[in-house]
């Protein structure tokens, strides 16, 4: 797909890097292939847009760039029926517990895409603001980051396809839930 899936990790990186695909080995069994094929091609996302990136997410769902051709057919309003949260917009101190509760209400397997500069690191509101959470990954674990302010619909589609590629390398035997150990700060 033209994406280099083995990034270089700098020597002073402060966190622990979990290899993509939940630590799977290169060989994926055929049962895993079928299950991953089913999971990756029918991810239904939750209606969660807080600010300007939500408009670009709505444009991605509209007629010109259509995300339902890749399987993301409908956006569900209820978290219990969704597999994917696309965090489109800034997360504020007052909204962070709500986001965490929505994530906890979703059923496994669940994935998160952080869309836009505000969800990645606070964006244009990083300096001098007393109420913005500097990045949604302080609240829930994120799988794919899509940069831009706001990102073009094509950029969001590339992020969604990258997530699909990541799901295809998962394995049922060595399953790691990204939420384990998240609150303790891994």
């Amino acid at each position: 797909m033209g994406i280099n899936n083995t990034p270089e990790i700098p020597a002073d990186f402060p966190g622990k890097v979990i290899p993509a695909g939940n630590g799977a080995n290169v060989i994926v069994t055929s049962l895993d292939q079928i299950i991953n094929w089913g999971r990756s091609n029918s991810l239904w996302s939750l209606y969660f847009g807080t600010s300007c990136c939500a408009i670009e997410m709505m444009q991605t769902g509209a007629a010109k760039h259509d995300y339902s051709r890749f399987g993301f057919e409908v956006a569900r309003p209820s978290p219990r029926q969704a597999d994917l949260i696309i965090i489109a917009g800034t997360i504020v101190n007052k909204m962070a517990p709500v986001l965490r509760r929505l994530y906890d209400q979703m059923a496994e397997p669940k994935y998160v895409i952080a869309m836009g500069a505000c969800a990645i690191s606070g964006g244009p509101f990083f300096y001098n603001s007393y109420s913005v959470v500097k990045g949604a990954d302080h609240v829930i674990p994120v799988d794919v980051y899509v940069p831009g302010c706001p990102p073009r619909p094509e950029a969001l589609l590339e992020g969604m396809l990258m997530l699909q590629a990541k799901i295809r390398t998962e394995s049922m035997k060595n399953k790691i839930f990204p939420i384990d150990g998240f609150d303790e700060g891994l």
């Binding site: 101190n93 990083f126 300096y127 001098n128 603001s129 007393y130 109420s131 500097k134």
Partner: peptide, 11 residues
């Protein structure tokens, strides 16, 4: 005179 060490990153 509002000061908030934790949340604000002053530039």
């Amino acid at each position: 005179d509002y000061v908030d060490e934790i949340n604000m990153v002053i530039k």
